[in-house]
Amino acid sequence: MRSRYTAFATGDDDHLFRTWHPAHRPADTASDPRVEWTGLTIVRTEAGGEDDAAGTVEFEANYRGPDGPGVLRENSRFARRAGRWFYTAPAEDA
């Protein structure tokens, strides 16, 4: 989760593409250059440890965009594939 936040914050679209699960990846994974990400707080995690195949991360990401400041709140699902973690989608209970 932290590496994906950093990728959004620095505009590293290649990292975003590589860490999005291929079965769930949208056609356009480019970050919005008009958005400045200003902070990340991990609220809680479930599973996602060394021996887990999946996990969730609830987070709050602060930003400034064309319409002013805001907070993105999400409970994200991740899956391990070939030893690496991939973002799949927001969890339904976000």
Rank of each mutant, 00 (worst) to 15 (best):
W85P: 01
E58M: 11
S76P: 15
A61Y: 06
G39I: 01
A23S: 11
T41G: 03
E92M: 06
L72T: 01
Y5T: 11
A91Y: 10
L72C: 02
L16D: 00
T45F: 03
T19G: 12
S31C: 04
P33D: 04
D67A: 10
S31W: 01
S76C: 09
G55I: 12
G49M: 08
L40Y: 15
G65H: 11
G65A: 11
S31V: 01
R81V: 03
I42S: 05
A54C: 10
R25S: 11
H24M: 10
A61C: 05
Y63S: 00
D12K: 10
E36P: 06
S3N: 14
A30Y: 12
A9M: 08
T56I: 06
E92A: 15
R81L: 08
R80H: 03
D67M: 07
G55C: 14
A27H: 05
R77I: 12
D52L: 07
S3W: 01
F8A: 00
T38Y: 00
A23N: 09
A79S: 09
R2D: 14
W20T: 15
W20P: 14
G48P: 01
E50P: 04
D93T: 09
R73A: 06
D28Q: 05
D51I: 08
R25K: 13
R73K: 11
D12G: 09
R77D: 03
A54T: 13
R2M: 11
D14W: 03
D51P: 00
T38H: 00
D67F: 03
T41W: 02
P66H: 01
R84H: 14
G83P: 10
Y63D: 00
T41A: 05
D51N: 15
A79G: 03
E50F: 04
I42L: 08
A82I: 06
F17W: 14
A47V: 05
H21W: 07
W20E: 06
R34P: 00
E36L: 01
T45P: 01
G70Y: 00
R4M: 05
A27R: 08
V71R: 08
T6G: 13
R18T: 09
D93H: 09
A79C: 05
E46V: 14
T10Y: 06
A82C: 12
W20R: 11
R44V: 08
G39D: 03
M1E: 12
D14Y: 02
D51A: 15
H21F: 07
V57D: 13
R81G: 03
E60P: 13
A47N: 12
T29M: 11
T10L: 13
A79I: 09
